[in-house]
Design a protein around this nucleic acid. Structure first.
Lengths: 206, 206
DNA sequence: ATATTTATCGAACGTTCGTTCGAACTCCTG
DNA sequence: CAGGAGTTCGAACGAACGTTCGATAAATAT
């Protein structure tokens, strides 16, 4: 890892802190300069615009969590266990990198065109995997529920924690993953749900 | 309703559109001026700062949904039904006022000091009611789960919809409330969950 | 030690920001 | 129709914005 890359990732870390606290639009380049201990002009040696900086943060965060997920899923075949792996992976990374994940979640719509499209593609792939896990579970247990609503509800449960999680009160990722996994999996485990429209589309429009 | 109040609420509506689209920090007073068809200076006849404008939007949205909830809960006594009333009320208002609710959810932390404290107090009361419904259910059915985690997970499921809801795909509030109610209530209905720490605190620190 | 690349900086650019102010317009009341 | 209150506006304020540029300092290579 070159000196350049190392310094860049330090800047990314500090920028993440600032975006977390003030939001992307609310954070100024001068804020970032102050936080990273580098001059305003100096920052532009490492990236060409504020927008690109957000892109770099989001891409790194998203590709990392996706990578870890893929590795972990390799070892597990049972459908419910695979969903629990998904939940645990998501929450573990979320809590260990709360600021990055808030910047990823909260600044979801600010990147436009090229950068935005690239991040959106990673996101689509991440969600697609989760929907597939739902489909596996439905097939294995002959369940009937909307994979789309279920998946997006699950993401809601998990992603919302950035608004309320307090380490001292809410325990670690394992506990939380177990609690949320219990609620979600038991909630979804019954033929009764969503009987009305079993052909409900499962592809996602995001 | 005075002419002043009427014009103000028109401005609030247009401002909500702009905040929804660009975020509070990303929206300029000139954007708001353009959207509401009034001159930049003219806006300041109706409110004294951009911050106050966000406060007015958030307060109106939050007090309205809270008011409706109280009215609806008066008619229902059975614990599970009361939670379903909460979910339906929340989702109905959320979908009918998507932009306002996004501004309320997404710009949660931007108001500081006086204004922020007032909104936070309404929020605390709203969440407190939901936690109490959980406690009622637990008592009535002798269940054992963390009211805090359950409540906040439920809020996550519901509030996250502003990131994915498409009317044509996801149906109306009733359907969604039934689906999410099924998942959540079935998920929470079992003595097995969270057995490990039955004394887990139920008061919320937000 | 010198030359060359890599890294950092102060100062400034033009633009946009939230807000103010006094003048003007509109409207209701006497 | 005169007059005062209620409403709207153009123009401007100083401050802060994202970005650029040429000079300088530090690190590396010769």
């Amino acid at each position: 890892m070159s000196r350049f890359d190392q310094r860049l990732s330090e800047i990314l870390t500090h920028a993440t802190d600032v975006f977390d606290e003030k939001g992307y639009a609310g954070a100024s380049m001068r804020d970032l300069s102050r936080a990273s201990g580098m001059s305003l002009a100096g920052l532009y040696y490492y990236f060409e615009s504020k927008e690109k900086l957000l892109y770099l943060i989001q891409r790194h965060t998203f590709t990392t969590i996706l990578e870890r997920l893929r590795t972990r899923l390799e070892d597990v075949t049972e459908p419910e266990a695979r969903i629990r792996v998904f939940i645990l992976n998501h929450l573990e990374y979320f809590l260990a990198n709360q600021k990055s994940m808030k910047v990823l979640s909260h600044e979801d719509e600010v990147l436009k065109n090229g950068y935005g499209a690239e991040i959106a593609a990673i996101k689509r792939e991440y969600v697609r995997i989760c929907v597939e896990l739902m489909e596996e579970l439905k097939r294995a247990r002959d369940l009937d529920f909307s994979s789309r609503t279920a998946t997006l509800s699950l993401f809601g449960m998990m992603n919302w924690i950035y608004t309320w999680y307090k380490p001292r009160v809410d325990g670690n990722a394992e506990e939380l993953a177990r609690e949320m996994g219990d609620i979600f999996l038991r909630g979804v485990s019954s033929g009764k749900a969503s009987k009305k429209d079993p052909e409900k589309r499962t592809d996602l429009i995001l």
